[in-house]
C-alpha cells in the first residue's frame, strides 16, 4: 500500500452521443498506485458529479477480466500497455508520476460510439447468431462420456473458447478486422467432434456475416494476438482460412 500519489494528466474522449462531435478533454488527477485504471475513472466521475458535471460514460462489469465489457484504448493500445490483461486489471502502478495518458474508445466502423468511451459491439453477436453454435436442442443428447476427446484437443479448443468478446482484436487491428474473434469461435467447434456436422456451413455463414458487419480484412499484422487479453493465437485465423477455403471448395452451396 503506497501512500505516494501519482499526479497524472488525462486526455479523455468525450462525445455526448453517437451523432455528436467528440473531443479529447483534459483532466488532472491524483491517484494511488494501488487503484485500478477504472477506479481512477470512478474517482474522476465522483468529483465530476460533485461539481454537477456529467460523469464520463464507460463500460465495465465484472472487473476481474472475464466479462469482456471493459475496453479502453490507453495511449493507443487496447487495454493499455500491460500485455494479457483487460482494462479493469490494469493498475496505476504501471504509470509514472507526471505521465500524460490518452483514453479513447475502441474505434471501428462496426463499433459506433454511443457515448464518450462506450461503443456498440453487438456486430460481434450478429456473427455468432448465424453459426456460433452446435445445432442441438435441450435434452436427448448422448451421455457426456460417450464422446471421448483427447486431452490436448480439448485444451486447444478451450484456448480458443477463452475469448471474452471484448473486441480488442478489432480495436487494435489497423483494418478493424474481426478475424481473431471469428476464428476463435470457429476453431473451438472445428477442433471438437461435436462441431463437425456443421463445420462447413458454420464457417461459410460466419465469414459472410462478418463481412456484412463492416469489419475490415485481415492483413496478418498480428496486432490482434499481441493485444488480446486472453492470448488467443493467430493460429486460429490460419485454421479459419483453411476451413473457409476447404468449405468453399467442398460444400455444395452454390448460391
Amino acid at each position: 500500500m503506497s501512500d505516494v500519489k501519482l499526479k497524472l494528466k488525462l486526455k479523455i474522449w468525450r462525445q455526448p452521443g453517437s451523432d455528436a462531435v467528440g473531443k479529447l478533454v483534459d483532466y488532472d488527477v491524483e491517484v494511488s498506485p494501488d487503484d485500478s485504471f477504472l477506479e481512477m475513472l470512478d474517482q474522476i466521475n465522483e468529483s465530476l458529479e460533485k461539481n454537477n458535471q456529467e460523469p464520463i460514460v464507460f463500460e465495465s462489469d465484472c472487473r476481474e477480466g472475464i466479462c469482456g465489457a471493459c475496453g479502453l484504448v490507453i495511449n493507443g493500445q487496447p487495454h493499455g500497455p500491460v500485455p494479457r490483461i483487460t482494462t479493469c486489471q490494469l493498475h496505476m502502478r504501471h504509470f509514472k508520476n507526471g505521465d500524460t495518458i490518452y483514453v479513447e474508445p475502441f474505434r471501428a466502423k462496426a463499433f459506433p460510439v454511443l457515448k464518450d468511451l462506450l461503443v456498440d459491439r453487438t456486430p460481434l453477436d450478429k456473427i455468432l447468431q448465424v453459426g456460433g453454435f452446435v445445432s442441438i436442442n435441450t435434452g436427448g443428447v448422448p451421455d457426456a462420456n460417450e464422446i471421448p476427446i483427447a486431452k490436448d484437443v480439448a485444451a486447444q479448443s478451450f484456448d480458443a473458447a477463452a475469448c471474452i468478446g471484448c473486441g480488442a482484436c478489432v480495436a487494435s487491428c489497423k483494418n478493424a478486422s474481426a478475424m481473431l474473434f471469428v476464428s476463435a469461435k470457429v476453431s473451438q467447434y472445428a477442433l471438437l467432434p461435436q462441431g463437425q456436422p456443421e463445420r462447413q456451413r458454420r464457417v461459410e455463414a460466419m465469414v459472410k456475416a462478418m463481412d456484412e458487419q463492416g469489419f475490415g480484412s485481415c492483413t496478418n499484422t498480428y496486432a490482434c494476438e499481441a493485444e488480446c487479453p486472453k492470448g488467443i493465437s493467430i493460429s486460429n485465423i490460419a485454421r479459419l482460412n483453411r476451413d473457409f477455403f476447404s468449405a468453399k471448395l467442398k460444400s455444395k452451396n452454390v448460391s
Binding site: 453454435f133 452446435v134 442441438i136 435441450t138 435434452g139 443428447v141 448422448p142 451421455d143 457426456a144 462420456n145 464422446i147 471421448p148 476427446i149 483427447a150 486431452k151 480439448a154 485444451a155 479448443s157 478451450f158 473458447a161 473451438q188 467447434y189 471438437l192 461435436q194 462441431g195
Partner: peptide
Amino acid sequence: NSIIDQCVAQGVPFARDYGGLL
C-alpha cells in the same frame, strides 16, 4: 447429470483426462 450431457453436446470444452473422458 443431464446438464453435463447437454453442455458437452454443445461443445463446452470441459477438462479431460488422457483417455479422453471427463
